[in-house]
Simulated scan of single mutants.
Amino acid sequence: MEFTDYHTRLAAYALLVDEDDRVLLAWWNGEGHSDPEWSLPGGGIDFDEPVIDGMVREVFEETGCHVEPGPLLAEHHFTARGRTFDGWFRSQRFVFEATIIGGELGTTEVDGSTDHAAWVPLAELEGQPRADIVDVALAARAAER
């Protein structure tokens, strides 16, 4: 399939793990078409926005935290049929390490896709409903260690 035959969605996320082995996650509400689940804070990049800037913006919107971007940890893509349009799309996702430099925990979105954010102990994550991007990020983190 040629690049003009499908849509592309760029997204960037932050993996934030604290000294108590807790990961900062955003509760994605499913937007009326999927079951709610935990996700990494992050999301879609605006048309004329650098990927890093989009990640910083999305993390703030979903968690209330200001972050300093770190290195790229993982990149991942998948293809699927569109839910809001007829045709195929490619989702290209980037996960960055990041450090919290300010802000206050609490979602700043109004009527957005994130209901709240929370620090979730890694040991309690098993069995929790979560987006695959969480597992992509944690696997990349484990591979670096």
Rank of each mutant, 00 (worst) to 15 (best):
F47M: 05
G44D: 11
R22M: 09
E31N: 15
S39F: 11
G54V: 00
N29T: 14
R22A: 13
G44L: 13
V56Q: 13
S39D: 14
E37Q: 15
L40F: 08
I52C: 07
R22Y: 01
P36F: 04
R57Q: 05
F60H: 14
S39A: 15
V17F: 04
P41I: 09
W27K: 04
D46R: 13
S39Y: 10
N29R: 06
F47I: 11
D18G: 01
P41V: 10
L16F: 11
L15N: 05
V23H: 00
L40D: 05
D46V: 04
P36D: 07
G30E: 05
S34H: 13
D53T: 05
W28D: 15
N29L: 06
V23M: 03
E31K: 09
E49M: 07
G43P: 06
A26E: 08
D20T: 11
L40I: 09
R57D: 04
E19Y: 05
V17N: 07
L15G: 00
V17A: 02
E58R: 15
E37K: 15
V23W: 12
E62G: 07
D18E: 08
M55G: 02
D35S: 13
V51P: 00
L25N: 09
I52R: 12
M55H: 02
G42L: 08
G54S: 02
E31V: 12
E49C: 00
L25V: 15
V56N: 06
D53M: 02
V56G: 03
V59I: 09
F60I: 01
G44H: 12
D18N: 15
V23P: 01
L40W: 11
G44W: 07
W38L: 12
P36M: 10
F60L: 13
E61K: 13
P41E: 08
A26Q: 11
G44F: 07
I45A: 00
E61Q: 14
L40N: 05
E61D: 14
G44S: 13
D35P: 03
E31T: 15
F60Q: 10
S39C: 14
E19A: 12
D21R: 15
D48H: 06
R22H: 14
D21Q: 13
F47R: 15
F60S: 01
L40E: 03
G42M: 05
E19C: 00
R22K: 14
P41S: 06
G32L: 13
I52T: 10
G30W: 01
P50F: 01
D46G: 04
E62S: 07
E49D: 03
D35K: 13
G44M: 10
D21K: 13
L40S: 02
F47C: 06
F60R: 15
G54K: 02
D18K: 06
R22Q: 15
E62Y: 09
E49I: 00
S34Y: 09
E49Q: 10
D46P: 00
L25T: 14
D21L: 10
D46H: 04
P36V: 11
I45P: 00
D46W: 05
E49V: 00
E31C: 11
L25K: 09
I52G: 04
E19N: 07
W28S: 05
G30A: 08
V51T: 12
P50A: 01
W27I: 10
P50E: 04
V56E: 12
R22S: 12
D20C: 05
H33E: 12
W28Q: 10
D18T: 13
V23N: 04
E58P: 04
G43N: 09
V51C: 03
L16Y: 10
P50Y: 03
